[in-house]
Design a protein around this nucleic acid. Structure first.
Lengths: 255, 255
DNA sequence: TTCGCCACATTTGTCTGACCAATGGCTGGT
DNA sequence: ACCAGCCATTGGTCAGACAAATGTGGCGAA
């Protein structure tokens, strides 16, 4: 997310955060090193100390720095993460972040009724109509993920002209740009799975191959479930990593 | 983490954050509802607006609230998460958070040499000595996780008397309380796996049963790798969920 | 010399009060 | 009924000050 432009539209504190993150990741400040004192740093960035502190707080929560009262702010060692669920939204981003070229195979778009479980997860009435996007995602031409995405049909009410574009770009992009729906958070459940006949064919692996099954529900800013995805990942191609920051029993640490 | 006491040792802003989170999760403020204005809320909590804002920033980053300039701060719908890697550190917490009673079976503690891969992940020289803790974790008496934890032997230099306690309590607790090492972040890699003979025996499942394999490396505040865990989870008992907050392409959202 | 204690400068945490900018409802006119 | 513009409300930023925790250096006692 903080890749690229610290351009417009954001608050000043966010801009400062991005600048600081850039310096840390770029090696301007190295792990274990102390940052300049807050008043100094604020002045050099041309912002007030309050704004700087807001940025620092954010960085601390994401594990970039550790702050110790009376001592200073120190750069934390942060393991490099290629495919972090925290920052990579959607399969497209995931593939791209691994330095591979995302593609699509065997696209099918159709309308169907949500299963009982799906309706429950999407907070829809039973057998509610949903739009289904079924496709095999490829990385550099090789199949890596088979996904089935469900969008409540009600969301596209009167915008049926968007249907053919469903498979083209990222669904997140379509929701955002064409429907004004921004996905703010999602919950993904991870399970092991085996390739059945159709999965084996789609992913070109032997039947019974080990897969990672991700069941994911995305919510917009109002908390409405807007997207449900069944994803079957090739186990030996993708690894899923998450950072768990926190929070030992003793809040103290030494330098 | 914010379960229980907002007791001592923490900063005031953290305490305020916990109090607000408690009110949101407890239903005092419901989703889509607007919180009192910052000056009002700050006064009612007996803190300055700056401190309150620090707490709000933190809550916003964790997806509890959304703040819109000129409009107000709104409670976000937050899906219920039972076992969230973000907040549950360690298998013990994980089991407890599901409302089950954690236990241990077949504990083995021994010293060994790290494999090449393990040494690399722990940033140790090849074949460096490590302490291994091997055990089957149970929930309400039923085996659910088989774990193998590796701690660099150098960390326990001169504290060999702690060895017998390794299997007793949580390793995180032991590192924290007895060695002054607080785990600040960890990285976990998730993969599908099948039960081989020994895993099948330990977890009392048929050979070939589907498992979730979690390879996890934990780091202390200085970024030193202090713990490596191989964990095999029973696929149909545990689900792993993570929240991905973010960050649509368009930073604006409507109310 | 060595150890321990204390004063002090440094740094983050918190407070106060003020102004700026975006939002959304209200009002008045068409 | 509809629309445009005013305006109170609210979050974002700023400035300056004090409190509390930390680490260091010096001083004195053993």
């Amino acid at each position: 997310m903080q890749a690229g432009g610290q351009a417009t539209g954001d608050t000043l504190a966010v801009t400062v955060r991005q600048e600081l993150a850039r310096r840390i990741e770029g090696g301007t400040w190295r792990p274990r090193q102390r940052l300049p004192a807050e008043p100094t740093l604020a002045a050099s960035l041309g912002v007030s100390r309050a704004t700087l502190r807001e940025a620092l707080r954010s960085l601390e929560e994401d594990g970039f720095v550790t702050r110790v009262r009376g001592a200073g702010t120190f750069v934390t060692h942060r393991p490099r993460l290629k495919n972090n669920l925290d920052v990579n939204f959607g399969v497209t981003d995931l593939i791209r972040s691994m330095g591979m070229e995302p593609g699509t195979e065997g696209l099918k778009v159709y309308e169907a009724s949500a299963s009982a479980e799906e309706a429950r997860l999407l907070s829809l009435p039973n057998a509610a109509p949903v739009l289904c996007v079924e496709r095999t995602r490829t990385a550099d031409g090789r199949p890596v993920v088979f996904s089935l995405d469900l969008v409540p049909a009600a969301l596209l009410e009167g915008r049926e002209n968007l249907l053919p574009r469903l498979g083209q770009r990222s669904i997140y992009e379509l929701l955002d740009r064409d429907l004004g729906i921004t996905v703010r958070q999602g919950v993904v459940t991870v399970r092991p799975a085996k390739a059945d006949r159709s999965l084996a064919a789609a992913l070109r692996v032997p039947r019974g191959a080990l897969l990672l099954y991700l069941l994911q529900v995305d919510y917009d800013a109002d908390g409405r479930a807007v997207l449900l995805s069944h994803e079957h990942h090739l186990g030996d191609v993708f690894e899923v990593t998450v950072v768990r920051r926190g929070a030992g029993t003793l809040p103290r640490e030494r330098t």
